[in-house]
Simulated assay, not measured.
Amino acid sequence: MPELIAPAVRLHSAWLEAHAEWGPGSHEDGFGVGPSDEVDSPAGFAAWVARLADHRCTYRWIVEGDHVLGGIALRHGSSDYVRWAGHLGYGIRPSARRRGLATWAMGRMLDEARVLGLDRLLAVCAVDNVASVKAIERCGGVFECIWDTKFGPARRYWIEL
């Protein structure tokens, strides 16, 4: 049974295993890994996890036992980044996909958004990411438009809370 937990230093090895499964690149939305984050060493990983706790996002990891299956972020506010990337960012490791985990985790984060007093959330995904389109729509996402970004066309959805 999956759980949604705050990032935890104790899961360093499990997180590295999930990270390695994705391979190189910045395609693990929901984890909050920045280009300057050093996550391989225990000290670097602990510093990164501590930074996540102080961030203007609510980060959660999707775990099952001692396995990290993915991550999800609820971005607070309406910064330029939120207007571009949306309030929600998530990623599911390749071996854990097609289980409904993104939809499940997004539903839990909508509850956290309500607690924060948010009344609607922007969700954005690549136009060809069928799995994300389905997850967003299952969570009540209403399509707004397709717009061009520096990474290619993206679909924008609003989720009313």
Rank of each mutant, 00 (worst) to 15 (best):
M1Q: 13
A6P: 10
R10S: 15
H12R: 15
S13P: 10
S13C: 11
L16D: 06
E17W: 08
H19T: 07
E21F: 07
W22A: 08
S26Q: 11
H27T: 13
G30W: 00
G30V: 00
F31Q: 00
F31H: 08
F31D: 02
V33E: 01
A43L: 10
F45R: 00
A46W: 07
A47Q: 09
A47D: 10
V49W: 02
A50Y: 04
L52Y: 03
D54K: 13
R60D: 04
G65P: 05
G71W: 02
I72V: 13
S79H: 09
Y81P: 09
W84D: 15
L88P: 00
R93H: 04
S95C: 04
R97L: 07
R98I: 05
R99A: 08
R99G: 05
A102G: 02
A102L: 07
W104P: 02
W104V: 03
W104S: 03
M106L: 14
M106G: 06
D111R: 12
D111A: 14
R114V: 07
L116I: 08
L122C: 03
L122K: 06
L122F: 06
C125E: 03
N129C: 05
S132T: 01
R138H: 12
G140C: 04
G140R: 01
F143K: 07
I146A: 12
W147F: 15
T149M: 01
G152C: 01
G152Q: 03
P153N: 08
R156W: 05
I159V: 11
